[in-house]
Simulated scan of single mutants.
Amino acid sequence: MELSAVSETALWTLYQRSVEARRPDPLLEDPKAVELVERIDYPFAERFGTSDFQAQLQALRVACFDREVAGFLAREPRGTVVCLGEGLETQFWRVDNGRAQWLTVDLPESVSLREKLLPPGPRQRYLAADATDLAWADEVDRDRGVLVTAQGLCMYLRPPQVRALISGCADRFPGGSLVLDAVPRWFGRLTLRGSLRTHGYQAPPMPWAMDADEQAKLRTASPAVSAVRDVRPTGGRGLVGALLPLALVLPPLATRRPSVTVLEFAERPDRS
């Protein structure tokens, strides 16, 4: 299939997870990613290069999302996980509890590719739609808890779209939460200048970026955002493992790092 630049990032992240998962000491167990890379006829290494550093960083970021989803499923075993812009993410096979409902919302070309490579099971639904059009919210079962993830999505949106997405989720899922990630501003500027290229791969422009010390500002997107929480990576190997604790607390790295954020939504007041 011919993929757009943003949709091709699904192959990049898939490959990074598989590189990490193939190690004897992986930070992320992801046999489904390894299986997919072996099945897909695509020049992954030639296109993206192979970097232990990149694979580690990707695994650490993904593990932040996994922890949040696993925690949600522990509290709401039959809850609904909505994955926006999921691409070829294999989180379902890493953290599913056997009872939750999963809804993937992604662009038609991405859903078509996902359906071919990762056919949905009985508790999975794939919806071809624009994640920024909140019409997909009508497809969500809200009888139990709802967790929305936007992993590797928001940086490709415009700032007003990000605020509208947060506001829309806060309004439609009272008592729920949204987990999203952001690249720091310096990184976003590099992508806008077309300065991030490895081997044959050019990183797409990322119009929305946020430094880690700006997370609290996300609360201004809606009065229904009741709390904002930073999800910090843990672990790492070698130099990454040694420097990560320092990078999380020492300026300027602590404020100019990628971030994963949880937005919690207030319950709707009982008007009875």
Rank of each mutant, 00 (worst) to 15 (best):
F173C: 05
Y156E: 10
R158Q: 14
F173I: 00
A170L: 05
G145S: 13
L134I: 15
V82S: 00
G98V: 03
A131W: 01
F92D: 01
R189P: 11
T80M: 01
L178I: 04
L117Y: 09
A137G: 07
G175Y: 01
L127Q: 03
R172V: 02
G188Q: 05
V81T: 02
R172Q: 06
G194N: 06
D130K: 02
G176M: 10
G152F: 00
L113V: 08
D138I: 08
A150I: 00
A182F: 08
A150Y: 00
R144I: 06
E115G: 11
G152T: 02
T149P: 05
G168Q: 02
L127G: 06
L118T: 05
R163G: 08
S167I: 11
P77A: 07
M155T: 12
G87P: 11
V148D: 03
E109W: 10
L134K: 12
L147E: 00
L117A: 07
A170Y: 02
W186N: 01
P174D: 09
L157I: 00
R125D: 02
A150S: 09
N97G: 03
T191A: 14
R142T: 05
G85A: 06
V183I: 09
S167N: 15
Q151F: 10
R193P: 13
L103W: 04
V82P: 08
L165Q: 09
C83Q: 10
L107C: 06
A150V: 04
M155D: 08
T149R: 06
G87H: 08
A129S: 12
L84A: 00
V105T: 01
F173K: 07
A170D: 04
N97Q: 09
V81L: 10
W136M: 12
G87K: 06
E115K: 14
L190T: 13
R185Q: 14
R123M: 01
A128G: 05
G85P: 11
R158E: 15
A170C: 04
Y156F: 14
S110H: 05
S167T: 11
R78N: 03
L103N: 08
L192H: 13
R142D: 01
L103C: 08
P119Y: 10
